[in-house]
Design a protein around this nucleic acid. Structure first.
Length: 293
DNA sequence: GGTAGACCTGGACGC
DNA sequence: GCGTCCAGGTCTACC
């Protein structure tokens, strides 16, 4: 199957792929040969297909060796559109950037889109795995979850999809501690998986909700293990940029950028980008920091 | 509303 | 090789 998908201009696949660290988290894989990426997508039919996504004129080409029916093809197209934010329009953000040298590169480099997973469930779990650990720990825990509980791709059983809520709901806290070594995060991931699997929690509905951002943030904060940083990160992935994912890196960057290396608080980070209003998150993500370390 | 301590793991460091 | 310390967000209990 090959599927051509158009993107709202300007668009750069590499800009999305390297927008943040998600490309390092399975089942995402950077495809250095093409400059694109691969991702194992689990379809509603239960099949897992290994997608190769490359940049094409005006958008992307999504291809897989698996033969897909019309419904599966449409589902894959919707998933890729969501993951890459192909329909997102950042013209208002770019207008603001024209007056800010630190973001002068944004439009030319087609900055704005943040790589996201096929489901919000996957992005919430991944965000939980970023909390209170080094990045190497996040990569390790995520890879273990995929290896242990992910559906193998139909055409390559060495590649696996991210585990479904049902697959994780069948585990136990003890198993999630011992296998993927999630530590204290195990009960949070299990509770989330069981709530989604049972239908008690419809996370995917939040992708297109028209709830005001503060209300949506409250919903996210009600999830066990999701605090201010995690909620900010998830809001940004959902296309809501008026809250920041303030973590230790943000504190360090703002300290170096505006406070001569002196310690700053989360309130200082918020204040630094307050003028950006509904675009705070994007200004933060793509700011040309004095120190990129 | 603000704060302290616990949670868990891996990496850095000293011995 | 072993033990200790620390970093990384969130939760809970307490004030």
């Amino acid at each position: 199957m090959e599927l051509k998908l158009a993107a709202h201009p300007p668009f750069s696949l590499s800009s999305v792929v390297f927008s943040h660290g998600w490309i390092r988290l399975a089942p995402f894989v950077e495809d250095k040969a093409t400059g694109g990426l691969r991702y194992v997508l689990r379809l509603r039919s239960g099949r897992a297909v290994d997608l190769a996504i490359t940049e094409a004129d005006g958008g992307v080409l999504a291809a897989t060796d698996a033969a897909l029916g019309p419904d599966e093809t449409a589902e894959a197209g919707d998933a890729v559109t969501w993951m890459l934010g192909l329909d997102q329009d950042f013209s208002a953000f770019y207008e603001r950037c024209r007056h800010e040298p630190k973001l002068a590169h944004a439009q030319g480099a087609a900055r704005g889109r943040l790589l996201r997973s096929a489901t919000l469930f996957e992005d919430v779990v991944k965000t939980l795995l970023t909390t209170n650990t080094a990045w190497s720990g996040t990569v390790r825990m995520n890879a273990a979850l995929v290896d242990l509980y992910g559906e193998p791709a139909t055409t390559d059983d060495t590649r696996r999809a991210f585990p479904t809520p049902a697959a994780l709901a069948r585990t136990s806290v003890e198993e999630l501690r011992a296998g993927p070594r999630l530590g204290y995060r195990a009960p949070y991931v299990l509770e989330l998986a069981r709530a989604v699997d049972s239908g008690e929690l419809d996370l995917e509905a939040l992708k297109r909700t028209e709830l005001p951002t503060p209300e949506l943030r409250k919903r996210l904060l009600s999830l066990k293990g999701v605090g201010g940083y995690a909620a900010g990160n998830l809001l940004n992935l959902l296309g809501r940029y008026d809250f920041l994912p303030v973590d230790s890196w943000a504190l360090k960057m703002v300290s170096q950028e505006w406070h001569d290396g002196q310690a700053v608080t989360p309130a200082d980070v918020e204040a630094a980008f307050a003028a950006w209003g509904e675009w705070k998150g994007l200004a933060y993500w793509f700011w040309d920091w004095n120190s990129a370390s």
